[in-house]
Design a protein around this nucleic acid. Structure first.
Lengths: 234, 234
DNA sequence: CGATTGCTTGAGCGAGGTCAAGGTCAGTGG
DNA sequence: CCACTGACCTTGACCTCGCTCAAGCAATCG
């Protein structure tokens, strides 16, 4: 039994509302808790899952962050997602029963590990858990399609502004500051994700700082004019 | 009871393997059949679902095709998907219980209509149906994230080549010709989807024809050198 | 404390967007 | 059946945004 310390229980987890336990009653949470295991902490650059590996667990991010990426035919990394606390990692693996992307920690990261077989059983008996699974997957479908459209037809400035706004919103949903946060990914990661070069990312961050919209100190971002930034994202 | 004519049964549907009935036994298919209704045929430009409308049905495309799109803050249409026979429309609505995008027929289109409430009930009792739902959603998550990455870092030529290859593969999976098909969407639709201008789409199609890779006559596409086209997509 | 990785800034260039004009096709009504 | 109309497509000319190449600086890590 891995759940010996209190801080690993869903009840006490500040991410519960974004994660699997959403709208579960006390008993439901307890049942979920019994199958959830703690994963050993990842260090920066540790790889959580490899593409092609059989799907054994779904992972929930407790703290820290990860990037998911594929390696294309030319051996080039292609980042498809950044995961923050409360996010689940592994949905893309459900179809084939094996992971289709790599997931790597961007910093020290704590995870909950949910065995797929146990989850499958629980899902049968708990309609609200099933509903939340569907909800999370459906959201992911919409947001990635939305993003696709959004990025496709937008300038570099708009893309980066959009990226920052989205991050800001996600931090807010997690009870963290929406105006002041750390970029745990590198400029190259952002560029890769947004389809822009490192140089462009750097230049635009400088430009946004010059305009007084944000303040950037290395990894630290301060959004000075959130409304203005949101406008720039359109 | 809408299932009076034989051709609307899942058993006889050539798209069954791509659709909800996949890996269902005889009894499972029968049960699914009892809840599935036939939707009246859509004509070109008919709108099937509006963004914001409550989710009542999941739709399966029997024949024809649709595009799904959102309208952004500037009132601009942003195409996020094209649906071919066997595809399901409405997954993005499961999260919120209401549709998040518009879906419009690109040509005369026949649909099966699956009431969500009945589907929910069936899913509880039929593990393989649940599995297939998850599989379809998971695939959609992966493919849209994959596409995001793919398009982002690729040239206009590569994007369009990729688009044609993907269409070709999808037609093949549906038992149709992978080398000769009709583009039911306009050049503007393709451009919107790929983040390119109409002019660029037109120019590149002409260029590909000039190189002898494909032959284009209006909406009709003939892929002359599939391998070469696939190379160009990388 | 050096070495490596990550970030910034500048200069030049090319892919793809915009604007413009003309051509083609499908649907409609006479 | 044909003429008309509006939507759709193609091609050309020009210009701009963002990429590439290059060089130097800053931060992090062993």
């Amino acid at each position: 039994m891995a759940n010996l310390t209190s801080h690993i229980h869903c009840q006490n987890c500040s991410m519960a509302a974004l994660c699997l336990p959403y709208q579960l009653d006390q008993e439901g949470m307890n049942r979920l808790d019994t199958i959830i295991q703690r994963h050993k902490p990842l260090h920066k650059r540790d790889v959580l899952v490899n593409a092609g590996a059989p799907l054994k667990y779904l992972y929930a991010v407790r703290s820290g962050s990860l990037k998911s990426y594929t390696i294309d035919d030319n051996g080039v990394e292609q980042i498809i997602d950044f995961h923050l606390p409360g996010d689940l990692v592994g949905f893309d693996a459900l179809a084939e029963g094996q992971h289709r992307s790599y997931s790597q920690a961007l910093e020290t990261t704590m995870l909950c590990e949910v065995p797929i077989v146990s989850l499958d059983e629980l899902v049968i008996e708990m309609p609200s858990l099933r509903k939340q699974m569907m909800r999370l997957m459906s959201s992911e479908i919409f947001s990635s399609k939305q993003l696709l459209g959004t990025l496709n037809n937008r300038s570099a400035h708009q893309r980066l502004a959009h990226f920052l706004v989205t991050l800001s919103d996600r931090f807010k949903a997690r009870g963290l500051s929406s105006t002041s946060f750390r970029l745990t990914m590198t400029r190259a990661d952002i560029g890769n994700y947004l389809g822009l070069s490192v140089e462009t990312i750097s230049r635009i961050l400088s430009a946004l700082q010059g305009e007084g919209v944000i303040d950037v100190q290395n990894k630290l971002v301060n959004i000075i004019e959130p409304a203005r930034l949101r406008e720039l994202a359109h």
